Amino acid sequence: MVVLPPKKKRAHWGIYVALLPLALVLGAFQYYPALSGIWYSFWDWKPGFTSTFTGLDNYVRMFGDEIWWKSFGNLGIIFAFSVLTWVVPLVSAELLVSLKSERAQFIYRTLLIVPMAFPGVVTALVWSFLYQPNNGVVNQILRVFGLGDFAQNWLGNPELALIALLFIGFPFVAGLPFLIFYSTLKNIPNEIFEACALDGVGRVRRFFAIDMPLMGRQVQLLLILVIINTLQYGFVAYILTHGGPDNATMVPVLRMLNQAYDGQAWGYAAALSTTLFVFTIVLSAIVALFRRRDTTTNVKGI
């Protein structure tokens, strides 16, 4: 019997060549700016002029920046609020999956998804008109129902400004969490739901025993996305409040931009950006590792 030598795997050079332009574009427009930001965080960076190496001075300055650390307190509130808003899309997805009519599901699903197509800046500006202290819709509704005493300058009150920003987008159903929850529930075989019905398992018990465990990976993904989006939060606050009043809506991204463009402290802003990048990587890795450990424990238990 003649034993033939194993065939050598051919290198698919065409694939590597095809991916090379993508790698070059990513390197030029994504990785280079990020790495240069880390590099300039150790300098008194003056774009277009001679820069002086300062070592860790920018990071030492950061530790004494009270506004910077206060902005992280605001991020904690934003993160907690973002997670709480999952309740509405989760309940909506559960109700939508329960509809027996596919046509009805399609109609309601479309109505819930269409608002995602609205530009974020338009949504922010519309809500700024709703929050106007004199003729804003929110205060007008309060006055109509005899609650005029509760009318506020919502974006001008330091105690309410952050909460007012967080309520932009109410009732929070039109978004990525709804799509993820709905697609996960939709992919659960109907046989499982039928077996639960035959065994007399109620909706609440089925939700905690079947639906939630099957959405573990999706919840992990959403947590990572919420961490990233929270640390990068600043678009709405920049348009409506610029971090005020009295830094009540200040977030790290706005602090970084203020130091760069208003204070011309580009090196210090690069240090803040680098710190924000490290926080994003570390927190996302913790969530990913925690889920992986939990999955491994469950497999061993089985």
Rank of each mutant, 00 (worst) to 15 (best):
L165C: 07
G175M: 09
V138M: 07
G202R: 05
L165V: 06
L4E: 02
A288P: 00
T295S: 13
F178C: 04
D65G: 00
I141G: 04
D149C: 01
E66I: 04
I77S: 06
F207W: 06
S41D: 08
E191L: 12
P245T: 06
F42D: 09
T184A: 12
K70I: 03
T296D: 11
V282M: 08
V278C: 11
I168Q: 03
L162P: 01
T295A: 15
Q105L: 06
K186L: 15
L179E: 02
G14C: 04
V88K: 05
D57S: 13
S183D: 08
C196I: 11
D294R: 12
L225G: 00
I141F: 14
V173Q: 02
V219D: 01
V253I: 14
W127V: 02
V137S: 08
L223F: 09
M256H: 03
L125Q: 09
A161E: 00
V25D: 02
R203F: 13
V114I: 15
R206P: 01
Q152A: 11
V236C: 04
V138P: 00
A23R: 02
K9A: 15
F49I: 00
V219W: 07
A11Q: 10
A104P: 04
V88Q: 09
L221D: 02
V251W: 00
P21T: 08
A285F: 10
E191S: 14
I188T: 02
G263V: 04
F145G: 05
L26P: 02
I239A: 02
T184F: 10
S128A: 14
T295R: 11
L198G: 05
S71L: 04
F172I: 05
R10A: 14
A265M: 14
L35F: 13
A80E: 06
W266Y: 15
N153G: 08
F290Q: 08
A260L: 12
L254T: 00
I224P: 01
W154T: 01
L272F: 05
S128P: 04
V17D: 03
G301Q: 07
S183P: 01
A270M: 13
L35S: 01
I107Y: 15
P6T: 08
V114P: 05
Y268E: 02
N134I: 12
Q152I: 08
T241G: 04
I38M: 13
L56Y: 09
W45I: 02
